[in-house]
Design a protein around this nucleic acid. Sequence first.
DNA 1: GTCTATAACTAGATAGAC
DNA 2: GTCTATCTAGTTATAGAC
Lengths: 209, 209
Amino acid sequence: MSTKTKILDAAEQLFAVRGFNGTSLREITSQAEVNLAAVNYHFGSKKELIKAVMSRFLDVLSPRLTLALVKLCEDETPPNLVEVFSSFVEPLLHLNEVKENGTSNFLQLLGRGYTDSQGFLRWFLTTTYPEVISSFVNAVQKAYPELTREEIFWRLHFTMGTVVFTMSSSDALIDIAVNDFDKQTDISDVIKRVIPYVAAGVGAPINKI
Amino acid sequence: MSTKTKILDAAEQLFAVRGFNGTSLREITSQAEVNLAAVNYHFGSKKELIKAVMSRFLDVLSPRLTLALVKLCEDETPPNLVEVFSSFVEPLLHLNEVKENGTSNFLQLLGRGYTDSQGFLRWFLTTTYPEVISSFVNAVQKAYPELTREEIFWRLHFTMGTVVFTMSSSDALIDIAVNDFDKQTDISDVIKRVIPYVAAGVGAPINKI
DNA sequence: GTCTATAACTAGATAGAC
DNA sequence: GTCTATCTAGTTATAGAC
C-alpha cells in the first residue's frame, strides 16, 4: 500500500470524525504511519489533501448518480419523488464496496465540508461536479412540475441539510437508537428512513408567502 | 457596556460566522476591543465562553418555546404538525428583539455546535434545557399518534438537521436567492419556507423497513 | 521518495504588575 | 478589573541530508 493511499485513508477517517479544522496533519501522518512531510510532498497542502479525499469518492459517485437520475427521467411516465430520492441509494451504498465504511465516511465528510471551512467545499463540489446537481434538479422538476425553480432551490437545500447533518452525526444517532430502542441499526437503515422524510418535504404543498 | 458583554457580543458574531473551532480568543478580544486575558478572567476558558454565549439565547428562548408548545397541546382538538412547527416562529423571532440579528445568530450557532466540538453542545443542550425537547416530542405525538417513539426520534433529528444546516449557511443561501431569483429574502422568510417542508417530512407516511 | 530538523507561526492559558 | 509579558503546546510548511 502506497504512502499516498495510506495518507488518504487516514485523512478520510479522521476528517469524517473530527472535521477538517479539527484534524491536524500530525494526527493524519501518525495514524497513517508515514512521515509528516509526506503530506506536503504528495499533496502540496492540507487543502489539496481535502480535495483529494473528496474526489476519490466523487469520481465514483458522480457518474453513477447522474446516470441513475437521467435514466429515471427517460421514462414515459414522470417519476415520483420517492423514486427520485431512491435513485441515490444504490450509488451511495456502492461506495461501501469501493472502500470499507465508504458510504458513511463520504456522507459525514460532506456534512463537515458544508460547515467547516466557510463553504469552500460547496464551491469545489458545484464547480467540479455540476452535472449531479443539474440532473437532480431536473428529476425533481419532472416529478413535481408545479414547484418553481426558487422553491426547488430552497427545498433542495433543506434536503441537503437533512441528509448531511444526519450523516455527520450518524454514529452518535445510531448509538442512541441502539441504546434507547434496542434496535440494531446501520447506515443503510438510516438512508431508508430518511427517504420518505425528504420526499414528503420536497413534495409538501406550496405555501404562498 | 461592560467588558463581559463586549466579549459575549463579539464571540457570538464570530462563532456564528466562523464556527467555534475556527474562532480564536485573540480574534474575539480584538474585535471586542478588550484585553486577551479578559476572557479567562471573566469566563475561565473558551468552552465556558461558548456555553455563556448559548445560554444568553437559551434562557430567553427555552421558557417561551416550552410555553407555546404546552399551550398548543392543551386544546381539546389535537394540533396538526404545521401548528407544532409554527409554534417556533414567535419565540425564535423574539430573539431579534432581544439582540440585533438574534434569531439568525442563534440558529447559526446551533448549527455550528452540532458539528464543531464533537457533540459537546448537544450534551449541554439536552442536559440543561430538557423541557424544550420533551414538550416538543409531546406535541408531535399528539399531532401524529401513529408515529412510534423510535420514528419520532429519527424524524426529529432529520428536522433538526434541516433547520440547523439551513440556518448555519443561511447567509450564503440568502445571497444566492437574492442573486438568482432577484428576491429580497430574510431569516423570517426562510423560517416560513422551512415549516411546510419539515411538517410534511415529520408527517410522512410510515415506511415499514 | 522518505527522512530529520526546524522555521515561522498560532493556539489557549496564566503569573504578576498596576 | 485590566494590563503586559510570557509559557507551553500546538499548527502548517519546508530545506536539505540520505
